[in-house]
Design a protein around this nucleic acid. Sequence first.
DNA 1: ATTATATAATACCATAGGGAACTTGTCAAA
DNA 2: TTTGACAAGTTCCCTATGGTATTATATAAT
Lengths: 264, 264
Amino acid sequence: MVDSRLPAGRARPVRGPSIDRNSFEPPYYQLANILRRQIAAGELRPGDRVPSEGQLCEQYGVSPMTVRRAINILLDEGLVTATRGRGTFVRPLVLGTATFGLQALEDLFNDAHTTVRFLSVKTAPATPRISQKLGVPADAKVIFIRRLLSNDGEPVAYHREYLVFDPTQPIVEAEMGITSLQGLFEGRGETVLKRGDLTIEATVLTEEEATLLNATPGRAAFRIEHIFFDFEDRPVSWGWFIVRGDRLRFQATVGVRREGEGRS
Amino acid sequence: MVDSRLPAGRARPVRGPSIDRNSFEPPYYQLANILRRQIAAGELRPGDRVPSEGQLCEQYGVSPMTVRRAINILLDEGLVTATRGRGTFVRPLVLGTATFGLQALEDLFNDAHTTVRFLSVKTAPATPRISQKLGVPADAKVIFIRRLLSNDGEPVAYHREYLVFDPTQPIVEAEMGITSLQGLFEGRGETVLKRGDLTIEATVLTEEEATLLNATPGRAAFRIEHIFFDFEDRPVSWGWFIVRGDRLRFQATVGVRREGEGRS
DNA sequence: ATTATATAATACCATAGGGAACTTGTCAAA
DNA sequence: TTTGACAAGTTCCCTATGGTATTATATAAT
């Protein structure tokens, strides 16, 4: 066992993890992981105080900037809160901080077994709702696209999309719209769009959707509405996905996250 | 596209925004906003190169660390990508980067007009499914709680929760469970729980749920399943919320975010 | 022509040091 | 008892400087 009669004072050798100078992981990253692990292990509990920046500097032999950066990471993750003049404290579990992404939906698209079939591509006069959403005059022409996404032949998602119709370059614009979604998930192309707003709702399949998705009406489904804007902040595309509820689920974690979730 | 064959010379006076030294916003924050605004305005388009760190230093008269921090923010937001030795580039819109929060759910709880009613609090033998989820022996006693959340008298969510029953401190444990949810959203108390996993599904109301929620069966609803772990990583609470679909929606933005989303 | 090597540019990372703003507690004065 | 000033501790923030790893490019050698 370890001798606990430590001489007072003097940055005593920390019994526990330390920074590995020969690792590929930079010190700030290691330190963040160390602290996160201590929280995960319960050595630091909600409400507890995290050692001050000065203490951490001494303790791990790193510079203030490095400590700050490590703490900033935990701050971003919502794991701790810091108040100037008071200290840094471990935050209790807060459900509202949980986040989830569209990774599951993206996977659905990028799955090699997933195919996209166009049900229709045509122009149509805008309904009041469409004209409102896209900011075009009533009865203006819009491009209307319907897609069906199937996985191994089994339909899983139905997509409706309305695109503004630009008479100056009609064909190109339409083709952009057609190919747009593929690129959207991949990150290639699509230099036309600047911003998008997304909304997720729970809904049930209508008759039409049910027949297309090879299911019975009234089944549970997600409705993911989207609207994209161009660089002049004008709406370009409005539409929504209908995804069978049994084919999609979103997951989130609250509290201590998995180790090392670097940026992309 | 921006012409990158710039005349070699001389940090020319930048026509455009600059850092305000007398502002409350720290320089790194201002710089991040400037760049974000340039992306939002289309001055920097997807695929374009962001000026190098050195250039930004000169241009805005700040130190490298400050620049790095600003860029880190954009990196975290998924707005740009950086590769060592190559440069930093504006990223096209990627749907997968959209993140949704459970803030909406939290708001539902913390609304002053929301009240919680207990339908039942009792112990029951664990079904196979419960024993599996909570990691307790089959037929072990568990605490079973049913809650009904109403907003202005109108029921919006139904909650079932199973808690492990600790014979050593039965009453305290039970009460912890009862009060747990309140604290979970607020961030007070609840030093018992370390981590939680959440799953969000689309579903339709069963007969029972419909009558409780004062709606008709077959209506759309969210099913938010949760499982919480203690500091020994043992499951403590398993259950799920059934939230009326017309009372909850999740929203997110992809691409350029609103100005200034600091940490909490 | 192809391959290796040097060079520059770049994003990264860390150190050392100092200052500003806020909170808390103590102690003296009213 | 209450108020006010002060000091210490803390989180923040920035500057200045230098080093490392990777990439791209130009140059030399094969």
